[in-house]
Design a protein around this nucleic acid. Structure first.
Length: 274
DNA sequence: ATGGTGGGTACCCCA
């Protein structure tokens, strides 16, 4: 029997593209260079009817699960390998498109999330957006506990809009009161991590003492030299998949591509046993 | 302490 193209391994990328239609050229470049099997995108900013299916067909990503809306949010998973089912869940009783999932070969669920960014003021009483972010995380915690009890093999990816550790930000001290790195957020993320027994696949490969970012603000001139980044984009796996994680990379060069998203792709190679 | 840039859309919201 012919061996599968993936050889039992699958490469998954997560990327907040900040408008999928505008990023066609960047997506061509990225897939030409890295050719991940699966791309999970956030902030596609397009209704499903207008999603650029043909672009991804051309690039070989003919399997597509989209959950978009006009203007804001929107997530999608495109794949070179077939997936079995897809589902888009609603969170916090809102219609925001912030989740889509598929079941990959090897019976591995892939969940793609776009967590609310949380606005500017890190106080849920003064800022409804921050309150929404914390409630969204609470729902993810309850959801993770249920999945864990069910024993689901899963990969959780996405723009989680939190940089959890000191070396996930350019300055731990200077960002303690900045939304994305406040203790209330990093503690919520720690609870989420615990609730699902998640393993940070990227930090499993890249040591925790190494500075690592996936996002650089548009507002910072000379992003590369200043390097005031944050690691907001994550790939987590359930414990049974931990030893299967053999490679992880952050595609920093895509931040310098024109046009650029303010986020870059984060990739993991995973042995699924498929 | 402030304002800095960018996307989508429609003269302003969101990141």
């Amino acid at each position: 029997m012919a061996k599968k193209k993936t050889g039992g391994a699958i490469t998954i990328a997560t990327w907040n593209v900040n408008s999928v239609r505008r990023m066609a050229d960047a997506l061509r470049h990225f897939t030409g260079q890295q050719a991940p099997d699966v791309i999970a995108m956030q902030e596609t900013k397009v209704m499903d009817e207008l999603f650029p299916r043909e672009l991804f067909n051309e690039l070989g990503y003919t399997h597509q699960a989209v959950a978009g809306q006009k203007m804001h949010h929107g997530v999608a998973i495109v794949s070179r390998v077939p997936f079995e089912r897809s589902e888009a869940l609603s969170w916090c009783g809102k219609q925001d498109k912030r989740h889509v999932s598929v079941t990959l070969p090897g019976n591995v669920e892939l969940h793609n999330f776009y967590v609310p960014s949380g606005g500017d003021i890190p106080d849920p009483k003064l800022n409804e957006k921050f309150d929404h972010k914390l409630r969204f995380l609470d729902e993810m915690i309850a959801w993770s506990k249920r999945r864990r009890k069910m024993g689901v093999r899963a990969v959780l990816v996405g723009d989680l809009n939190i940089a959890p550790h000191e070396n996930d930000v350019w300055s731990h001290k200077q960002l303690l009161k900045v939304v994305s790195h406040t203790p209330v957020e990093t503690e919520a993320m720690a609870r989420l991590y615990e609730a699902g027994a998640w393993v940070d696949a990227v930090r499993h490969i890249i040591p925790a003492d190494k500075k690592l970012y996936s996002w650089w603000s548009y507002r910072s001139p000379d992003w590369d030299a200043a390097d005031k980044g944050r690691r907001l984009d994550h790939v987590w796996v359930t414990p049974d998949l931990k030893t299967g994680v053999t490679h992880a990379a952050v595609e920093r060069t895509m931040r310098g591509h024109s046009p650029a998203s303010d986020h870059v792709p984060v990739m993991v190679k995973l042995e699924t046993g498929a």
